[in-house]
């Protein structure tokens, strides 16, 4: 079947892929030539082709995380040619297409590198630290049932929209991978700001920011030094404003919280 661009020529590429047997093994880059890649393929479909080749030869396929392949679940990762999610701005690895590469290219593919994201195998890393940060306070404490009517609290559209923007974080970890200190500030700030902006989240805003930041430190993420590399690489455009908001929330909490 022909693709959307019937003139697109297949490409031959050289892949340099990080292979690591398990958490405790030392890994290394392994080179794989790959042929006949259609520009209409997605990056992960290109890796599928590689894996089918490896399997047919009886070799272990390259493990990588992925699920939705629509840019929304945040499961895919990959540090491609030195950039999280590859060269296209505002694009997750699964939404990156091979038309952004050219015949003869060499592509390096590595896992996220951060002390708080240990490698499980090959390109698969352990991001459970993110879940633990959310468990520390990324919620509004309401039980099921017994809540007011949804229209009981009007929320100005501008605030609802801003809260939505912060809420779109897909939890992929690219911000951490992009940061020279492996800081998780952008990720944490997205949830803190979303809930700080909304009336529902205001009651717990002080303890929330304190507990989430404390957990972030426990997990071993680095300090934020405002380089902005995170926001530049974030596939969904989470903005640095959220980090500013987290900072002011944090200072306010420290000054007044009963948790001090």
């Amino acid at each position: 079947m022909a693709g959307s661009n019937p003139n697109a020529k297949p490409m031959d590429l050289t892949l340099k892929v990080w292979r690591q047997k398990d958490k405790n093994a030392t890994g290394q880059m392994v080179t794989y030539p790959i042929k006949g890649i259609s520009p209409d393929m997605s990056f992960l479909e290109m890796l599928d082709v590689l894996n089918e080749d490896l399997l047919r030869k009886g070799e272990d396929p390259v493990a990588f995380d992925h699920d939705c392949r629509e840019g929304i679940c945040g499961m895919c990762s990959l540090f491609i040619n030195g950039r999280p999610h590859g060269p296209e701005r505002g694009t997750t690895t699964c939404q990156l297409h091979m038309r952004h590469f050219k015949d003869g290219d060499t592509i390096t593919i590595e896992p996220w590198r951060a002390a708080a994201f240990p490698v499980h195998k090959d390109l698969v890393v352990d991001r459970s630290a993110f879940d633990r940060i959310q468990q520390a306070g990324g919620y509004v404490s309401v039980n099921t049932g017994g809540v007011p009517d949804a229209n009981a609290i009007p929320i100005p559209k501008s605030i609802a929209d801003k809260a939505f923007d912060a809420a779109t974080c897909i939890g992929c970890g690219a911000c951490v991978a992009a940061c020279k200190n492996a800081s998780a500030m952008l990720f944490v700030s997205a949830k803190v700001s979303q809930l700080a902006m909304l009336p529902q989240g205001k009651t717990e805003r002080k303890t929330r920011v304190e507990n989430m930041v404390a957990q972030m430190d426990i997990e071993g993420f680095g300090a934020c030094t405002n380089t902005g590399a995170c926001a530049a690489e974030c596939p969904v455009g989470i903005s640095l404003e959220n980090i500013n908001m987290l900072r002011s929330e944090f200072i306010y909490a420290k000054a007044t919280s009963e948790n001090m």
Partner: peptide, 22 residues
Amino acid sequence: VNIIDQCVAQGVPFAREYGGLL
């Protein structure tokens, strides 16, 4: 109807009109 109430209470940012209602 209860689902929408529950989700709003959790802070789910549904689309809203200029008047602030859903």
